[in-house]
Every structure is written in structure tokens, then in C-alpha cells.
Write a protein that binds this DNA or RNA. Structure first.
Length: 477
RNA sequence: GCCCCCAUCGUCUAGCGGCUAGGACACGGCCCUUUCAAGGCCGGAACGGCGGUUCGAUUCCGCCUGGGGGUACCA
């Protein structure tokens, strides 16, 4: 087993070309969990060397997403576009040692070369023409202002073998590797160069990244060797796919984790969900706190095949986690979604809704009747099947007088009185309760009726019964 | 085309030579019940195919098939 750096330092290195999506968040989370577990550091690096694809605001939104999910980074983010000089200097070192060379080929020539390779069914790779240019000539042409890129000189023979913490031992024959570009003609590095320089300088111990990078990993290793640097350990984690087995992208519902926040998901639920995508603790536990995730996480248990995101499970998890929240905490998280109510108003109501919520966003509809009269009264739903409106009007009326005279305004007092009334009327309790439910809440699906009435208060209940009664009488009469 | 990775219920997974192949989501049924949930119980549902190795393969090896990724002066 190769020597690895210590202490543990890992990084999440997004390129600011869009929002933080679930797959990116998962990669970040794996890094984060590993860092916390190993008492190491979690860093953020902004890979913005592709000037053409930058999206303004992207960095801020990625940082906001990570923050929402509770991932905090331990040092200010490294921003690659601010480190151009360091990469150029590194490229110079490689040029001098012969591990890299200038390439003066034009895009046209490269395109033609590839077309010919395609026609011959050969792998499309740079044909290394400029690798044969003597140093003096190369220096002279560069000094004369001729445009060039710097390419890595891959060894012609042998194989590059490394042990990936997730994938196991991986072998690449060097003669299948391309002399890819390290430094572009605009002076910016490509990913490969910037990666090596930055991970070395920030003393990254473990590179945990998407397995899209696996094919370039041998080149990265060769780069570290060329610099005589100790390479980090690698852990390539498989992608997260959408239900159509395509990589998570725009068309799969939310492309930004912040959309889950806005849709009423708990960050704990999203963390749990992505942690269990392609990873499991090896036990039958299926919901863990962030502390437990940190304690139990292990790179070796990451699945080697891609995982398909099952958003139904996220919803279920959200409901489970909502139920585990202390009632006061739930009220606090709900308050922003219900501007008409204060946290204090909400607290006593939590027992009525906590076990029926799957997302926070379902709460407003469920609770609104505590703060506003139903408007308009849904008259058409006031008459149960098999009954007529006149009977419903009578039921409403009788319920109002029964309740008006009720000395004990508690659930324990209200329920027997109403059941007795139903019997007098020759109605099922079910039908009577539904009429009252609609009259009082304006909806057919609500928190438990009796408890809701007890908390609403006698005055408001009576007012709504009377209002519904007259609306119904007016409609049918 | 070439290179690399992967393969257990629909989905997420447990399994690391001998198991009635376990759990969870989703689905169906029943119970509970004033609606809706939640909860409880029960049920259907998987080792991609073919060859090896072995007393014995889900498990080890090879091939095929299938899926994914890479193959840019993108990350």
C-alpha cells in the first residue's frame, strides 16, 4: 500500500458553471464526512480555468448550497483563475525536465489528424509530432511569438498502476494515454495541470471525485511523478444517475439543491438521501444523524456501480426526519412558510401536523384555517352523500347549539357531545364530522377535527358553523 | 472505433464458497380510524447469459450481453 499524506485533507472542487446538483452535493458530502471522521480538513476549490463556461453567481450559489447542507469548509476557497502564474511556473519546470513539450500544431491540423484516425478506426490521440522538436528550436519559436500549448510527454512504454480506494487496483497501458494539453494557448492551465499543482500545494491527502476522472487518473499520477511530488490517494466514486439512467441533469427535477430547500425538504433529509446513494453502513439502519454518518462512513463501502436517484425515498426520508424533530424546532422551520403565524402560534399546533407532513410546504394548507376563516365557504362539499342540504343545515344548526351550551371546551368534552348529537340526528359520526370539518376548516382533508376545534376556541368554531349554515341555507333555499 | 469502470427485487442495498438470498423505498391486502396521514401485520418482487474452478457457486476466473464513463487548448 502506497504511502499517503497525513493529516487528512480533502477538497470539493466544483467548476462554477452552474448550480450545486445532487451528484455534486454527494461528492462534496463524501469528502466532508471523510474529513470530519479523520479529524482532517475539508477544503473548497473553485476550478474556473475554463473562461468560456463560467456562469456568474455560480460560485455563490454552490457555496450557499453547501452551507444549507451543513458542510463547512475549513480554509478560504482556492480560486484557480487567481493562480495563473503558479501554473505557468510549474509548466516551465516540466518543460525544462523534458516531462512536457511545446506543441505548435494548429487546431486545423489536429482536426484533420483526428479525421484520418477516425477513418482508419484508430484511437484519436495527438500524434506527438511536436514532441520531436529540439528544445532550441522550440524556445526560438516561442520567443518569436509563435502560439503554442504545452503538452505532457507521456512515457511510451510500461503501464501505470494504482490502487483506487473505491475501484481497487486499476491498470492503464501508457501507450493508450494521450499527450494531453497542460497549458492552453491563452496561458491558462487545463484541469490536469491545475489539479496537480493545487492538490500538491494545499497538501491534499485524498482525492475523492467523480469516476469521470478515472481515465485521466494515470496521467495525473504521471504528472505527480514528473514533479517528484508524493501523490494523493485516489477514490473515484460512481456517478448518480436520473431515473432514465442518464447522468443527473437539468431535466431531472431539481437541478439545484436549493430547490429542495424551497420545496420544503430538510437539509438532514437531503444529506441522508445522498449519503445512501451508492453507500451504506453495511447494517440495516436506514436513517442516520450527521454525527452517525461521520462515525460510520468509509470509502471502502462505496458502491462501485452508478446509483439511480430514487426521489420517492427522499420524500419518505423527509417525512421521517420531520417526525423526529422536536416540536418547537419544527415550528421554527415552518414559520417562514406561514407568514400569517408566529413561531409561538405554531408551537401548540405541531402535534396535529407533525406526523402528517412529508414536506414543510404541506403545512400552510393544513394549518391555514387556524389563522383565517375559510373563504369562500365550500358549500357544495357541505352535504354528505345520501343526505340533502336541508338536513345538513339542520345538523350544522344543532351542532352549533350543542356546542354553545357545552361547559367543557376540550377534546374530551367536545367529542362525546358530538357523537351523541349524531345519534340523535340518525347520522353516522363520520358524516357529521365531515360536515363540521368542511364548515370549520374549509377543506375535506385536515388535521384531526376534535383537537383542532379545541384549539381554535369556541367563539371561532361557532362563528364558522353559523356562517356555513347560512351559506348553505342561502344556496339551497 | 479505442481505453477504463461496473452488473443481487422496479429503485437504494446486505451478502465477501454452503443463507428458506436479509432490510428499506415504491406497490397490493388487512388492522387501527372522524378525513388525511402516521403506525402495525401480511404479500408479490432479484442473483443478466454461457462456460470453467470446486464436493458445492450470488460469491472466484474467462467470454458474451447489458449499463456507465472517457476519448477537447471542458471540468
Amino acid at each position: 500500500m502506497a504511502e499517503t499524506r497525513s493529516p487528512v485533507r480533502v477538497r470539493y472542487a466544483p467548476s462554477p458553471t452552474g448550480a450545486l446538483h445532487l451528484g455534486g452535493a454527494r461528492t462534496a458530502l463524501f469528502n466532508y464526512l471523510f474529513a470530519r471522521q479523520q479529524n482532517g480538513q475539508f477544503l473548497l476549490r473553485i476550478e474556473d480555468t475554463d473562461r468560456a463556461r463560467l456562469k456568474p453567481g455560480s460560485q455563490a450559489s454552490i457555496e450557499e448550497g453547501l452551507g444549507w447542507l451543513g458542510m463547512t469548509w475549513d480554509e478560504p476557497p482556492v480560486v484557480q483563475s487567481e493562480r495563473k502564474a503558479a501554473y505557468q511556473q510549474a509548466a516551465q519546470v516540466l518543460l525544462e525536465s523534458g516531462a512536457a513539450y511545446r506543441c505548435f500544431c494548429t487546431p486545423q491540423r489536429l482536426e484533420q489528424m483526428r479525421a484520418e484516425q477516425r477513418a482508419r478506426h484508430e484511437p484519436e490521440r495527438y500524434d506527438r509530432r511536436c514532441r520531436a522538436i529540439p528544445r532550441e528550436e522550440s524556445d526560438r519559436r516561442a520567443a518569436a511569438g509563435e502560439g503554442f500549448v504545452v503538452r505532457q510527454a507521456i512515457p511510451l512504454e510500461g503501464s501505470t498502476v494504482f490502487h483506487d480506494l473505491v475501484m481497487g487496483t486499476v491498470t492503464f497501458r501508457n501507450d493508450t494515454l494521450d499527450d494531453h494539453v497542460l497549458l492552453k494557448s491563452d496561458g491558462f492551465p487545463t484541469y490536469h495541470l491545475a489539479f496537480a499543482v493545487d492538490d500538491h500545494e494545499t497538501r491534499i491527502s485524498h482525492v475523492i471525485r467523480g469516476d469521470g476522472w478515472l481515465p485521466s487518473a494515470p496521467k495525473h499520477l504521471l504528472l505527480f511523478q514528473a514533479f517528484h511530488w508524493l501523490p494523493p490517494a485516489f477514490a473515484h466514486v460512481p456517478l448518480v444517475l436520473g431515473p432514465d439512467k442518464k447522468p443527473l441533469a437539468k431535466r431531472h427535477g431539481a437541478k439545484d439543491v436549493l430547490e429542495y430547500r424551497d420545496a420544503g425538504y430538510l437539509p438532514e433529509a437531503v444529506d441522508n438521501f445522498i449519503a445512501f446513494l451508492g453507500w451504506s453502513p453495511g447494517t440495516e439502519e436506514d436513517i442516520l444523524t450527521i454525527e452517525q454518518l461521520i462515525a460510520k462512513f468509509s470509502l471502502e463501502k462505496i458502491q462501485t456501480s452508478p446509483a439511480i436517484a430514487n426521489l420517492e425515498r427522499l420524500e419518505w426520508l423527509n417525512g421521517q426526519l420531520i417526525r423526529r424533530l422536536p416540536a418547537d424546532e419544527l415550528a421554527a422551520r415552518l414559520a417562514p412558510k406561514l407568514p400569517e403565524a408566529s413561531v409561538e402560534d405554531l408551537k401548540p399546533l405541531m402535534p396535529l401536523v407533525q406526523e402528517r407532513l412529508r414536506t414543510l410546504n404541506e403545512a400552510p394548507e393544513m394549518l391555514r384555517f387556524f389563522f383565517r376563516d375559510p373563504d369562500p365557504v365550500p358549500v357544495e362539499q357541505l352535504t354528505p352523500k345520501g343526505k340533502d342540504p336541508a338536513a345538513a343545515t339542520t345538523a350544522l344548526d344543532r351542532a352549533a347549539s350543542t356546542l354553545r351550551d357545552l361547559p367543557d371546551w376540550t377534546a374530551e368534552g367536545i367529542e362525546p357531545a358530538l357523537r351523541e348529537l349524531a345519534e340523535h340526528l340518525g347520522w353516522s359520526a363520520r358524516d357529521l364530522f365531515m360536515v363540521l370539518r368542511v364548515a370549520i376548516t374549509g377543506r375535506t382533508v385536515t388535521p384531526p377535527l376534535i383537537e383542532s376545534m379545541a384549539r381554535l376556541g369556541k367563539d371561532r368554531v361557532l362563528a364558522r358553523l353559523e356562517r356555513a349554515g347560512s351559506a348553505l341555507a342561502e344556496r339551497s333555499g
